[in-house]
Nucleic acid binder design. Sequence first.
RNA 1: GCUGGAAUAGUCUAGUGGCAAUGACAAGAGACUGUAAAUCUCUCGGCUUCGGCCUUCGUAGGUUCGAGUCCUACUUCCAGCA
Length: 408
Amino acid sequence: MEFRVEKTLANGLGRAGVIKTTHGEIKTPAFMAVGTRGFVRFIPADELHALGAQAMLSNGYHLRRQAAEIAMSGGLASWSPTDQPTEPWQGPTLTDSGGFQVMSLGSGLGKVVSMERERGVTNTAHTERLAKVTEEGVNFIDPFDHQPDFIGPEESMRIQCQIGADIHMAFDELTSLADTYEYNVEALQRTERWAERSLREHLKHRDDLGYRQNLYAVLQGGRWEDLRRQTARNLAAMRVDGAGFDGFGLGGAFLKEDLGEILRWCNEELPQEKPRHLLGLSHPDDILIGAEMGADTFDCVAPMREARHGKIYTLQGNYNLRKMTESGEPLAKDCDCATCQAGWTRGSLRALWRSGEVEKKQKYYNLASVHNLRFIVRLTEEVRAAIMGDYFTEYKGKFLAEYYGGQI
RNA sequence: GCUGGAAUAGUCUAGUGGCAAUGACAAGAGACUGUAAAUCUCUCGGCUUCGGCCUUCGUAGGUUCGAGUCCUACUUCCAGCA
């Protein structure tokens, strides 16, 4: 993998660049579509390409039982599940380690991850969690079949090297907003030990499929500057047999107002010549702050999940499709997505969504997902153009003013 | 005409003495950020100072401390018999 920075913002952090992987280039900043189980729900690969998606993120945790099968077919770029009609996504890919599930099945079980929720968030009681963290790794109960299972750094690396995405994530522990400083110190030190074990195991298998796979370390440390800066330095300096990480994942549960600062702390310490992936965020303000503070790639389930739940993105803000019963308006003004170009209106889309017929609903999920995903992909394209063209600050201000209507 | 059965909120539906009344759908509001999420939460007779108050289960009476529920009559619908 090769990463080249083409232009840097005046703040010295934000930049535009190109990541070159075995399966293609990613022009950054870029948004990766989330295809947790190896495909993007309701959007076939050709439509993904058509809407400008440059890469897909899948999850080693969810694909752990198909990993050997994926390896047999040559890796994620030549595999798609037999029960899905889509062709494989042949472009660049990234897999997550399963670290997020440590939190979502553990301290965050049954809870909604939010960046704006009151600070009174609480952790799920230990006795109720489906995932338990030990030094070795994470013991968990599969929520679907209730079978006990275990993933540690070595397991995650072997799974990811069988899946064969271009970029892998080290196995990390994501803490929740409710965790204390003391717990974050403990979890962070463990995450760094896991990072080293991840790197060691990754190096053994990174060429197993006949092409070079790459590993990012993940920075945790919650909202504390000392933890963030120190872990950035530690992970940037980490070497196993002379080899370091190929890039860095920026992880954690944030409050919105803290995001920019946290990214600045991390990225001021990280080497500029390595790419950085901001894990799991995609609302426009998060992308704009992320890009400004030096994140190169993004991923998030929100555009498509919110589409499925009836929230439609527009430059003037979002709206809920529920209230658009009779509307003959387009989904969004001047939108270049395939759905809008095909002439779908708010009312006609709503009728599909609320039809109660499975096939129509699936059509709705496709059309709405394409629209929202294109919206976020277009945003990253425009951010890149703004960085390259030296007008990022004006672009950001104008976008936020129009999108949030002065509410931010 | 006779004999049974049935009428409950926008719709369908539960309820056989303590009920502003079950559930579903529809409708309305909110949430969702490295996917246990085609999901979840809330509202859904009126008013309210949020403690309640008022009006509601086809219509009109009655029994009862208390009736959607029991009784009588009537109206409409369904089924069977003529």
